[in-house]
């Protein structure tokens, strides 16, 4: 993967000027590259990693992993039914996987009830859905390479040879 992408994937706030300094290239070149990545759909967006476990307000949400068994369709395979499913805003992630089921979803809702009714009323009744298994997430330890823990204090002594 291009170094620009590696850098931005770790910290999207780093500016083109700073990346230019790190990679010994001109800021213009870096800005051009980023624009190209955005245009080509390689960079799709920039966001902040928030530890929602620590936000104990009324808007806190529950998440569930849902295994879905579907019947693939002629010509389009799984793509069409996947699209019908992932278009629901409640579906945060959607993967086609090998193994005992076909689609793996990550669904988010404001409480248990909301997620359950999404499954019961929207997902399960779909024509090509043969069955679902819902796992509510209880605790998040690590997500996308980020450990959900307070940043640890520095253990190094402040000055050494």
């Amino acid at each position: 993967m291009d170094e620009i992408l590696e850098i931005l994937e770790k910290d999207a706030r780093i500016t083109p000027e700073e990346i230019a300094k790190m990679l010994n290239k001109s800021p213009r070149k870096i800005r051009e590259m980023i624009k190209r990545y955005e245009k080509e759909g390689i960079i799709l967006g920039y966001k902040t990693v928030i530890n929602k476990e620590l936000i104990r307000d009324a808007n806190s949400e529950v998440r569930a992993l849902i295994e879905v068994n579907v019947t693939p369709q002629k010509d389009v395979g799984f793509d069409k039914i996947a699209e019908r499913i992932y278009s629901f805003p409640e579906v945060k992630s959607c993967y086609l996987v090998s193994g005992t089921y076909d689609l793996l979803l990550i669904v988010e809702g404001k409480d248990l009830h909301t997620v359950s009714s999404f499954v019961a009323e929207k997902l399960a009744p779909l024509e090509n859905v043969r069955g679902t298994v819902t796992h509510f997430l209880l605790k998040k330890y690590k997500e996308d390479g980020v450990t959900l823990k307070h940043r640890e204090e520095n253990k190094r002594i402040a000055i050494s040879y």
Binding site: I157, A158, I159, S160
Partner: peptide, 17 residues
């Protein structure tokens, strides 16, 4: 060195590790 070790909230560019 003792001065550094006694201070808080220092940004240290003095670490050899």
């Amino acid at each position: 060195f003792d001065l550094v070790l006694g201070m808080k909230e220092v940004i240290s560019l003095g670490v050899g590790e």
